[in-house]
Amino acid sequence: MEVSITQYKRCDVVKAAGRVDSNTAPSLAEALDSITEAGRFKIVFDMKDISFVSSKGWWVLIDTQKKCKRYKRGELVLVNIHKEIQESLNLVGLGTYFQIFDDLTAAVGSF
């Protein structure tokens, strides 16, 4: 899975495409870890081109959210999430741990 990171003044925007499953989740985790390990904790994950997320993928995002919110130093927010993906996130009770935005400008502007 190819993951791109764009560093803005106020936050980092992460973008990827396709499936986030047990096969691809480690690549996403690596990209997110590279941001938090560099001491940046305000992250927008643009899910416009993400077509599928299994529970493995959610745990990668939860893990990053823990690192970001610790000491109130930041947050991981989600944007452009497909309806079916959001429904499954809510079904497993993890929806409440993320702020979800409808457009990228609003997500970036939240920081």
């Binding site: 529970s55 745990w59 939860i62 959210q65 823990k66 919110k69 610790r70 497993v92 993890l94 741990y97």
Partner: peptide
């Protein structure tokens, strides 16, 4: 958030 652990969700 801190209490969440990865198991059983699948």
């Amino acid at each position: 958030l801190e209490e969440l652990e990865e198991h059983g969700a699948g």
